[in-house]
Nucleic acid binder design. Structure first.
Length: 855
RNA sequence: GGGUUCAUAGCUCAGUUGGUUAGAGCGUUACGUUGACAUCGUAAAGGUCAGAGGUUCGAUUCCUCUUGGACCCACCA
């Protein structure tokens, strides 16, 4: 039965229908892959509920889907588990902004907790479906029946259980410590949620009073109203005599300050004045000094509203930080206490969500202790986080996580070394409420609401707390579900390097602790997509390219292919529309290849076995196909998506379409091989461009391509034809060398007939060639006079004139000399591999032959 | 200050343990094209693989330095 297909592939016509077919087939769900035994599980990095699909998601979904479709076809119980993230701060910040636009100036005060939460919930439920539908548009083959939301009941239960376990083990504690505070967001932020920006600042060098012996410098003069000490290096001869002394100075704060001179190695003798004014309340480092020297005291002078507190004194109370700074500097000037004033550039920490300058404030917050020994383990969380990349979890070498590319390990280890206790409490409302209850002076962790008189902590958990539990919370933990037993630890994880610390590190922390296992066997790090100008595609600004638009214009397959081609793990890649055009052209080419074959082959059916080769051309294409299967499989096994796609691209277009199909128009009887090669190619292409391949496949077989089996090479048939090919290849090499050495005139004939049309002349006798060249229109008038001269020797005689000949001979002689020199080199003969030497000898021989002929 | 990374054709990038002639796409130029495909075909031009040294029979690949970019972490008194 012959088939009629449209002239060009119209993605729009097919994609939604195909996705529906896949979904209804149930094969996204590994439970329905009856024959599969070995699990292969990937968790989707959950997109934020309020987000819309951007190119980063598109890239991730392409990568994830290639991986899972490949494994599914390879016979694994393949599960790609989808999800969404409630994205605590990000979501609340967004909704508050919307509300403010609508006229509610202070949503938290005006609406109160319950009403605001309701608004956020509504908002997020709406946008959740948006992003999930967009993910379906990408063709992502995930099991929607297992969909997990970081904020649903199962996940919340996991989070609370985890909190309780850590609390009971003493790893979660509540402490009064300096934390990062966003005045705009009215919440804490972890160190990782800060972005640093360089800004011009003024450095003031001053003394607290005229009789204070040590000058200090600062960029934040207003905080000096809360100074409690001056730290000097114990080895510093200038100041060491003062260590331990106390000075009382009155700089206008509520009370005169008692400044204790303390010794601290962190004070660099050679930097600035060599002494540091210590403000325990408003600097992380200073706070650490305070913890070592508690007697110096702590005086917060900045409040949660970003204004000076009562402690700052009546002249300053209620002023903003900047106002207070100005006023205090004036006071210093009036009293002649400023020694030096200079301009400089400092990086200032800002909230990544709210954008305001982060204030360091001392507060009572919840922390995870990363240095404390875990009961029964004799190791800290920090140590566990290192083990999975070094000795393996619990010292088990099989439990070493493989990371690609490996270089990210360095920065991960460095990050761990600098890791401080993780502040997990947030003062926003959208999130997992901390499961701690208070009654008078009693504190209890409870997963259920407690009775009268008990009130729950009003804070919520950092969103990464729940993300850290993702690999096991999605599988139903703490219940011992079938899924958990089957799929944990997961096989593969994929993420951009920008969330390495946020997410990968936290998953490792949580999983090694709670499950006593690694979260995943392998992690693949991809780069960031940038615009043509090298700028990040900003999520919020949505600069330019919208994947949904691209899908509309070019189709999902084209988008997927253009995202994958030319990327390397961990490296950033530029992305622009022309890339999609190229990919779309290929998709159309594949469509037309199929169209041609399906329209010209009479008996369309599934061909299970490799058809028998009749001619050398058949042998060659089947041989090449086998090697393509092998290298694509190997590259996919190693997650070299880009390379695999390029090999396929090249074979499909150059070898199959432009060469073999053209030959099939002359040499008849190739239907079986054409169909077989097409079917194999559809399978190989399916993970990359699932829609078009499935669409074409429908014309061949009623079963879904998605669950067809991955092609295997038939090594036996390969051996059989190997002999022939050795001969062939010898000739090819000889011809190629000739071509090389005769760049001037030979190129026309050689390129036309030998290079691009590969082994054309070897397939047929000369008569046939002349005839077929004419028929296939491979040759123009220009080539007519040389068509019959496929014998190169003759051609040389006729074509090359005397001058060229002399020049050519000189070139060849020089070449021969070079080769001989190399071959006569003793070291080369002794040390180089034999095949290299053989090759050089062959080159030399053909060069001599050529020389003979020219003479 | 510590660390990572990049520099390959006009542009965007591949290049998997060092080894035949360094590749692709786009762009450019020439030629071709009557039904699978102008979303096409055939070819051409275009590279001291940033520079200098070293290791090696042999370096785009490994090492050192230099130049110029990007990024991460810490610090920023």
């Amino acid at each position: 039965m012959k088939i009629e297909l449209e002239k060009a592939y119209e993605a729009k016509q097919f994609e939604d229908k195909i996705y529906k077919t896949w979904e209804e087939s149930g094969f996204f769900n590994p439970d329905n892959l009856k024959h599969a035994k070995k699990p292969y599980c990937i968790l989707m990095p959950p997109p934020n509920v309020t987000g819309i699909l951007h190119l980063g998601h598109a890239l991730e979904n392409s990568i994830l889907d290639i991986e899972i479709r490949f494994r599914r076809m390879c016979g694994y119980k393949a599960l790609l588990l989808p999800g969404a993230d409630h994205a605590a701060v990000a979501t609340q910040a967004r909704v508050e902004k919307e509300l403010q636009k609508a006229g509610i100036k202070n949503p938290r005060e005006e609406l109160g907790r319950e009403k605001l939460l309701k608004k956020i919930r509504e908002y997020s439920e709406n946008s959740k479906s948006t992003i999930l539908n967009q993910i379906k548009k990408m063709g992502t083959s995930c099991d929607w029946s297992r969909f997990a939301y970081t904020f649903d009941e199962t996940r919340s239960n996991a989070v609370n259980t985890l909190f309780q376990k850590m609390y009971n083990d003493g790893l979660i504690y509540r402490g009064y410590r300096a934390v990062n505070w966003s005045v705009c967001g009215q919440s804490t932020a972890s160190d990782d949620e800060l972005v640093y920006e360089d800004e011009p600042v003024t450095i003031y060098t001053f003394k607290y009073s005229h009789d204070f012996p040590i000058p200090i410098a600062t960029t934040r003069p207003e905080t000096k109203l809360g100074d409690c000490a001056v730290a000097v290096n114990p080895k510093d001869d200038r100041y060491s005599k003062y260590i331990g002394q106390k000075f009382t100075v009155d700089i206008g704060a509520l009370n005169p300050l008692t400044i204790t001179i303390i010794a601290d190695e962190n004070a660099d003798m050679n930097y600035g004045t060599g002494a540091v004014g210590v403000t325990p309340a408003h600097s992380m480092i200073d706070f650490e000094m305070y913890q070592k020297n508690k007697e110096i005291g702590i005086i917060p002078v900045i409040g949660h509203d970003g204004k000076m507190t009562k402690n700052a004194g009546e002249n300053y109370q209620g002023l903003t930080v900047l106002e207070a700074r100005k006023k205090f500097v004036n006071w210093l000037k009036e009293n002649n206490l400023i020694i030096k004033q200079e301009e400089s550039i400092h990086s200032v920490g800002k909230s990544d969500r709210f954008g305001d300058v982060i204030e360091v404030l001392p507060m009572r917050q919840w922390f995870i202790d990363v240095n404390k020994k875990i009961p029964g383990k004799n190791k800290s969380l920090k140590q566990l986080m290192k083990d999975v990349f070094t000795i393996g979890h619990n010292g088990n070498k099989k439990k070493i996580i493989k990371i690609t590319p490996a270089r990210f390990l360095n920065s991960y280890m460095q990050w761990i070394d600098n890791l401080r206790d993780w502040c997990i409490s947030r003062q926003i409302w959208w999130g997992h409420r901390i499961p701690v209850w208070y009654k008078d002076k009693e504190i209890k962790v409870s997963l259920e609401p407690l009775g009268d008189g008990w009130s729950q902590d009003s804070d919520t958990l950092d969103t990464w707390f729940s993300s850290g539990a993702w690999t096991f919370s999605t599988l139903g933990w703490p219940k011992k579900t079938k899924d958990f037993k089957m799929f944990h630890p997961t096989q593969w994880m994929q993420m951009g390097y920008e969330i390495l610390f946020f997410w990968m590190a936290r998953m490792i922390l949580m999983t090694t602790y709670a499950i006593d296992d690694i979260p995943f066997e392998e992690v693949y790090i991809h780069g960031i997509l940038r615009s043509k100008e090298g700028k990040k595609f900003s999520k919020s600004l949505g600069s330019g390219l919208d994947p949904i638009e691209i899908i509309k214009n070019y189709g999902t397959d084209a988008l997927r292919l253009s995202l994958i081609k030319g990327i390397a793990p961990g490296n950033d890649a530029k992305f622009y529309e022309e890339k999609v055009v190229g990919a779309r052209n290929f998709i159309n080419k594949l469509w037309n290849i199929s169209r041609y074959i399906l329209m010209s082959v009479n008996d369309i059916k599934l061909i299970e076995k490799e058809p028998k080769a009749q001619t050398l051309a058949d042998q060659w294409i089947l041989q090449k196909l086998n090697s393509v299967i092998e290298s694509v499989t190997e590259n996919l096994n190693n997650h070299n998506f880009s390379l695999a796609s390029e090999i396929l691209y090249d074979f499909t277009w150059t070898d199959f379409a432009d060469w073999y199909i053209e030959i099939s128009k002359i040499e008849k009887g190739k239907e079986q091989i054409l169909l077989y090669t097409l079917q194999t190619l559809l399978k190989l292409w399916h993970p990359f461009i699932p829609f078009i391949t499935e669409t074409i496949w429908k014309n061949i077989d009623s079963k879904l391509l998605m669950i067809s089996s991955w092609p295997k090479t038939d090594h036996k048939s390969e051996e059989k034809i190997n002999n022939n090919f050795e001969k062939l290849q010898e000739i090819i090499i000889a011809i190629r060398n000739l071509k090389n050495e005769n760049k001037i005139d030979l190129k026309t004939v050689v390129h036309c007939h030998l290079e691009s049309k590969k082994y054309f002349e070897l397939i047929m006798d000369q008569k046939n060639i002349i005839e077929s060249l004419a028929r296939v229109k491979l040759t123009s008038d220009k080539y007519k006079d040389v068509v019959h001269i496929l014998d190169i020797d003759i051609y040389i005689e006729i074509k090359i004139n005397e001058q060229d000949k002399i020049k050519k001979i000189k070139e060849i002689v020089a070449y021969i000399n070079k080769l001989e020199e190399k071959i006569n080199n003793k070291d080369f003969i002794q040390k180089a591999p034999t095949n290299i030497i053989e090759n050089e000898k062959k080159k030399l021989k053909s060069a001599y032959d050529l020389l003979e002929k020219l003479k």
